[in-house]
């Protein structure tokens, strides 16, 4: 009797779970994060202390900002694969120009390529309608080429990490990483922009139904150009933060962050097809990936294995979200 009564339950529970996950993606994500931390604590008892948390936050912040670029571009159905190159360029130019230049001038010089690449991306995607993936991949290839030429010209001057970036990237104040001083305003700004401003609404509108958005008077190319410039600028600032953390300027500095940044946004519930998602989920996604990376390092999984895992995570999560949307 009880068997029969409970029979239809699993089905409805599954549906309810799907509903729940679609409505509040943040709660399962936080549960997943806690599970990962608990596993970490079981594998390495005592790892969970103040220093570890601060360290995790330090490494999660650059990833979270880059994932913010992916979140915003994904909302319009795009993606920005040039963030790694842009961050590397800003970091490298900053580290080499600070030797002979005023910090403010060096900063402006470092941001210049970011704006240019963002502008080209935006025009290519918005005006010429090239697929964002191909476009941003192309500009990142060109950017890397410029960086190699640039490296030749400054090889004599040497490089130095400015003290300020050192302090911002690695320093702690009362146990809190100084990087939070940069991250909290950026995060608040992105969340506010996406939820409360007209520009944020436009991003969702364009991603949800581009045709409808156009017909209701949205100037598509202006929105897209502004979006990609903004994304590039954020990537450039991340590069400055990251060089303070890593302290070794190289031509492939931020390249390893590109794939995790896409994965973080996808895990955080932002649809890669546009129109759905938000930045808070992405932040939790970045934290999950950082903890997962620590876990995989402890388990001694090589870099290759990590990439395979991240690739499958992107595929699996996208497929799962697709099912949830279809169900509704």
């Amino acid at each position: 009797m009880t068997d029969i009564a409970t029979m239809p339950r699993p089905v409805s529970f599954g549906r309810r779970l799907k509903r729940f996950m679609a409505d509040r993606p943040l709660i399962p994500l936080i549960i997943l994060l806690i599970i990962l931390v608990v596993i970490l604590q079981i594998l390495r008892p005592g790892i969970l202390n103040e220093r570890w948390i601060a360290n995790t936050a330090k490494f999660a912040i650059p990833l979270a900002i880059l994932a913010g670029c992916q979140t915003m571009t994904m909302l319009t159905g795009g993606i920005d694969l040039s963030v790694g190159t842009v961050a590397t360029m800003s970091a490298f130019i900053m580290a080499t120009q600070i030797v002979n230049q005023d910090p403010a001038v060096a900063f402006l010089l470092a941001m210049l390529p970011a704006v240019l690449i963002g502008l080209i991306n935006g025009i290519g995607v918005g005006v010429f309608r090239v697929h964002p993936l191909i476009m941003t991949l192309g500009t990142s290839l060109i950017g890397t080429g410029f960086l190699q030429v640039y490296q030749r010209t400054v090889i004599a001057s040497g490089a130095r990490i400015p003290d300020f970036l050192n302090w911002l990237g690695t320093g702690l104040t009362y146990g809190f990483p100084n990087a939070l001083l940069l991250f909290v305003p950026v995060a608040v700004l992105i969340v506010f922009m996406l939820n409360r401003t007209g520009f944020g609404r436009l991003l969702y509108a364009v991603g949800d139904n581009e045709r409808a958005a156009r017909l209701s008077g949205v100037r598509y190319w202006q929105v897209i150009t502004a979006l990609y410039v903004l994304s590039s600028l954020l990537a450039g600032i991340t590069g400055l933060l990251y060089i303070g953390l890593i302290k070794a300027p190289s031509l492939s500095l931020a390249e390893p962050l590109v794939l995790p940044s896409v994965a973080a946004a996808v895990i955080g519930g932002t649809s890669i097809f546009g129109g759905r998602g938000g930045y808070t989920g992405t932040i939790v996604g970045a934290l999950i990936l950082t903890v997962l990376t620590t876990l995989l390092t402890i388990l001694q999984m090589p870099e290759g294995g990590r990439r395979i895992l991240f690739g499958f995570i992107v595929l699996f999560v996208t497929a799962a979200y697709l099912r949830i949307i279809e169900d509704r």
Binding site: L133, L259, V262, P302, E303, G304, G305, R306, R307, I308, L309, F310, G311, F312, V314, L315, T318
Partner: peptide, 14 residues
């Protein structure tokens, strides 16, 4: 795109 990551990782493992 996901397979690009996977195959890249596999190449590094080999």
């Amino acid at each position: 795109l996901a397979m690009l990551f996977v195959l890249q990782g596999a190449a590094l493992l080999v």
